[in-house]
Simulated scan of single mutants.
Amino acid sequence: MSFSLSKIVVSPEGEQLYTFEYAALITETSITVVEVYVKLGIIDAIGDLLHSREIARIAQIQRLRQDLGLNLVGAAMVLDMATEIAQLRAQLKVHQSYSSNTL
């Protein structure tokens, strides 16, 4: 299945989706790399389409691999941990806000 780079596809949530070809172009990788990331579960695809956040994740992984010399699994783990830390910080902020309002 082939898509034009200019084709606009929107998810049921109203978010724009992008082709593997577009993701490869933007992240300066190849379609094969994008497909491997999907097969390994490093990024999530909707059929042959990706959310912009998944394209950003590809770019971040590429930077971690090039700049820090991390392997693919290590780069994915760093991003997963960073996401988890951000979520925990947000939860802590909500908890602190709730605690200070009940005093």
Rank of each mutant, 00 (worst) to 15 (best):
N71Q: 07
N101A: 15
K39W: 13
S30F: 09
E21A: 15
V73I: 15
G74S: 04
G41E: 06
L49D: 07
L25M: 14
V36R: 14
A23G: 04
A59P: 07
M77P: 09
L50S: 05
A56D: 12
Q91A: 12
A86N: 03
N101Y: 15
Y37K: 06
E84N: 02
T19E: 07
G47C: 10
D80T: 00
E28G: 13
L70W: 01
V73G: 10
E21D: 15
L88F: 06
R89L: 03
I31G: 08
A45P: 07
A59W: 04
T83S: 01
L25V: 14
K93L: 11
F20P: 06
I42A: 05
E54C: 04
L17S: 05
L17A: 06
Q66E: 12
T83F: 01
Y37L: 08
S99H: 15
V34Y: 03
V78A: 00
T83N: 02
Y37C: 05
R53Y: 11
F20C: 09
V94W: 13
L64D: 01
L79C: 01
R65I: 09
G47T: 07
N71V: 04
T19P: 06
V94Y: 11
Y22S: 09
R63D: 08
Q96I: 10
L25C: 13
V33F: 15
P12A: 14
Q62I: 05
S100N: 14
D48P: 11
G69I: 05
Q60A: 04
V33P: 10
D67G: 08
V78R: 01
L70Y: 00
L25K: 13
V9W: 10
Y22D: 09
V34D: 03
L17Q: 05
I61F: 00
I58R: 02
S30K: 11
S11E: 12
Q91V: 06
A23N: 04
N101K: 13
A23Y: 03
H51A: 13
K39T: 14
E35P: 08
Y22C: 08
K93Q: 11
E54R: 03
T29K: 05
D67V: 08
A59L: 09
A56Y: 10
H51C: 13
I46P: 13
G47F: 09
E84G: 02
R89G: 03
R53C: 11
D44M: 14
N71I: 05
Y98K: 14
T19I: 08
T19K: 06
P12C: 12
L49Y: 07
A23M: 05
G69W: 04
V10W: 08
